[in-house]
Design a binder for these strands. Sequence first.
DNA 1: TCAAACCGAACCATTTTGGTTCCATATAAT
DNA 2: ATTATATGGAACCAAAATGGTTCGGTTTGA
Lengths: 152, 152
Amino acid sequence: MLALTKKTGYGLIAMAHLASLDGQKVSSAREIASTSGVPAGLLMNVMKELCAAGYVESVRGAHGGYRLARRPDEINLADLIGAVERPVRLVECVTDEAGERECTCELMARCPIADPVHRVHRKLNDFLKKVTLAEIVEPCLLEKFSSGQTAG
Amino acid sequence: MLALTKKTGYGLIAMAHLASLDGQKVSSAREIASTSGVPAGLLMNVMKELCAAGYVESVRGAHGGYRLARRPDEINLADLIGAVERPVRLVECVTDEAGERECTCELMARCPIADPVHRVHRKLNDFLKKVTLAEIVEPCLLEKFSSGQTAG
DNA sequence: TCAAACCGAACCATTTTGGTTCCATATAAT
DNA sequence: ATTATATGGAACCAAAATGGTTCGGTTTGA
């Protein structure tokens, strides 16, 4: 459908939330969920994936939670998508993000559009790599500095 | 999954095929299917949709088939996607291609990322609008003019 | 009249998504 | 120690989307 999944959307919302925290503070998945209105159980799963992918750090046990593991401008949409949903793949016959063909699509031999479409795929990926969490999160940060830390 | 559906891929292949025909010649869905190795029944459906959307013209009856209804440089990927699959929609809360919100997403009121994500959606759409059939089809056209009409 | 082609509409199996639930482990507070 | 709260890991399921088929109808050239 050429759409992000809800998991990615929820992940973005959660990362935006975490970006609005200061210092080493953590926020639990349940907390993020209730603040943002996202289903808690699903968000828990997403957070685990974000953690496994190294975008957030977890603190276990009571008063635990998550915090960002990288600066927002070091996190881009393409990688984030790869962490919580299947990787971007404009067409089936391109599996790695560089757009190289590795598959054994039977159409490939006579497919008249493989090369140009792979080129488009690479351009799409470049585009997504340029979209950073920093710019998605920007209004949240503004809010953070103007309204004095009401989140949480 | 942020991927085109196979229908869109098949549609592109078919349009590329049609672009390689000269003049007012038509090619039947079955013919395109057997040439390109795409499942015939499904391609028939896709062709109907492309026809309904005005990208190809149909000639009914024996010796009928399809031909392009527009110049390849007047057909862009964003519109084509809209014709054969559900429209591009980076997130749920944006339904029209301009990226304006029209939905009534309950998260909207407290969603911290709606505006930036909509901005990204618009940029994605602009990108897809710039990808024309002409550039996807280019190698086919080269083949057409160099090897003297072997296709079909 | 017949066969080839489009037209319209169901119909179905598989895959993906969205979401829940359960159990195990870690840890702060009592 | 016990308990409440958290993550970690994995299975599980329903709903939606996709990929593909099929059937009956209409048009039209031979």
